[in-house]
Simulated assay, not measured.
Amino acid sequence: MTETAIEFVNVLKRYGSAVAVDKMSFSIAKGELVTFLGPSGCGKTTSLRLIAGLELPTEGQVKIAGRDVSRDPASERNVGMVFQSYALFPHMSVLDNVSYGPTIRGVPKAEARDRARAILDQVGLAGYEARLPSELSGGQQQRVAVARAIVQQPDVLLFDEPLSNVDAKLRRKVRAEIRELQQRFGLTAVYVTHDQEEALAVSDRIVVMKMGQIAQIGTPAELYEQPASSFVADFIGDANLIEGKVSSGTFHAAHLALPVRAADGIVTATIRPERIRLAKGGIATIRSASYLGSRMEYVVQDENLEFLVSRPISEPRLTAGDSVDLQIDPADLVLVR
């Protein structure tokens, strides 16, 4: 049986009349990395702060390792946190930064420094112990921040927008390092970001939030391929949201006619841009064609509908004004609320 590391039970957080987190319930298994993802103001950072003990719930329970910590301050929770700014002490060496936490918790200085050296070795920073944070790259500073959190052997490791201060070209590398460290140490981690690609890359599961509530929880593949709502479909990557009509088991929109399993009526469907194929000589028209290095991106007009289509650069290129046929596998059309 999977051990539960974190649990929210009907958690409500209110600031005056404003509701930041609205009766949320979910659980995170030990060793999972779960990301809170959503637009600004959706409650994802508040949820992280409720786990950390930096905020206390108005109602409901927050549990860590099976213990109700709802009213416990941050100092009484075994939680490590990696902040947006890393929050490293600029006047302290790397070794002193990492050994600081155990030292103030009463661990003898020599033992704390031994622990810090061991962790620094494991995160690939052996030999950097004497450097100041200003002498490190952004990615190295991130690893110091992670090491400082790991050295305290937390029940949960929290990441608050950890790549917001990392140069765009470094993000892919640093997020891969964070994921590798989390898996190597078997850490339970909660990650907050507004970047959909980042969330898809690092997460075991993603909690998509909207206005303080859970819109959908699932693996990256589940959310991308089977979104439960138009909001999730539109927020996770690019999506064509198509309003059409189901009649006798067929979805109709513009010139599309695709078999579906749904009751008759007006519905909204979604199809990912890369799942649409194009063939010359149809009745739709390419309105624009954009070269994006690894792919071509087309905007295609079919009657009153516009479709965003993404095709590999290896395929024959089409140009604006070309007549095309939209080819869609019925399995790639997902009906949403």
Rank of each mutant, 00 (worst) to 15 (best):
D195G: 12
K169M: 09
A189H: 06
L326A: 04
Q142G: 04
G212N: 00
D302G: 03
D238R: 06
P220M: 07
L318I: 02
N10R: 14
Y15H: 05
R49F: 11
R287K: 15
Q226N: 14
E161Y: 00
L95K: 02
Q226Y: 14
A130D: 12
L48H: 06
G127D: 09
R71G: 14
E243P: 12
N165H: 06
P330R: 08
K169N: 09
A18S: 11
N10M: 08
G106A: 00
N78G: 08
G31P: 12
G139L: 00
S25N: 13
I313C: 14
V62E: 01
D234M: 05
V208C: 00
D238T: 09
A239T: 00
P133T: 00
R184S: 12
G106N: 00
A87Q: 06
G41Y: 05
N165R: 11
I328P: 10
G186L: 03
R143W: 02
A279I: 04
I6E: 12
F89H: 04
S294A: 05
L158G: 00
V202W: 06
A189V: 00
L241N: 11
A201Q: 08
V34A: 03
P108K: 13
L120Y: 09
I266Q: 12
H255E: 13
Q61F: 11
I286Y: 09
R115G: 12
I214H: 05
T58G: 02
